[in-house]
Write a protein that binds this DNA or RNA. Structure first.
Lengths: 108, 108
DNA sequence: GTAGGTATCTTGTAATGCAAGATACTGTGT
DNA sequence: ACACAGTATCTTGCATTACAAGATACCTAC
């Protein structure tokens, strides 16, 4: 899978999954991996950034099958960001598709 | 416009435009800019890379209104790459859309 | 001659994903 | 007791790519 395609997109994917339910990091890797390859070395720095930017808060929870899980929950700001990024992605993907299909006239 | 989204995508855009007609660098910037912001500092290194990788060949042509233009033409290898990258992009975009919409079950 | 549009190219910086590894808890098998 | 696999978190260093800013140069018009 083309690594470069993922730049910036994984952030929306994480926000989109968190918009549906709180998740811990390892769980996010598994959820997103159903559709897109993602590794742990990617998710943890990303989650730290999202927290630093105020888009998520965290809380710990015992699991019984391993070390405690750190759950991530979207803040209001995070929900807003999720909407904006989703819109931006949709617009971007449409623009790319138009270019790939050969509709080079921006008027259309 | 989100810079990160473009990573890797501009390469397909350039190949897709070149699949329709030979272009010179400045022209490619204008064509692609109708849909997606792109700057000259991005296109020239990208074109050099495509040439180094054997996806395009170049030829010079006088213009009458400025310095000579360096046209880029797709090679067979470039056409093949264009198809493969396009397929890969389509698959990737579908995967992202599915995640954003919340269809987290990969079976569907 | 100087300003602006056309055209190419280089340098340094920023952002992000990944491989690889470190750490640690739990349960299973030997 | 011991080793191993699965669960779970985190860090470091590297590779890739886009961009701003600038250098260069040609042509036309004022």
């Amino acid at each position: 899978m083309n690594i470069q395609f993922k730049k910036g997109v994984l952030e929306i994917c994480v926000l989109a999954v968190l918009a549906q339910k709180d998740c811990y990091g390892y769980e996010l890797v598994n959820e997103i991996s159903k559709r897109i390859d993602i590794s742990e070395g990617t998710i943890y720095p990303l989650l730290r950034r999202l927290k630093d930017e105020g888009y998520v808060t965290t809380y710990l929870q015992e699991s019984g099958e391993g070390p405690p899980r750190k759950y991530y929950r979207l803040t209001e700001s995070g929900r807003k960001e999720e909407h904006e990024l989703k819109d931006e992605w949709m617009r971007f993907a449409s623009a790319v598709n138009a270019l790939l299909v050969g509709k080079n006239d921006a008027a259309e």
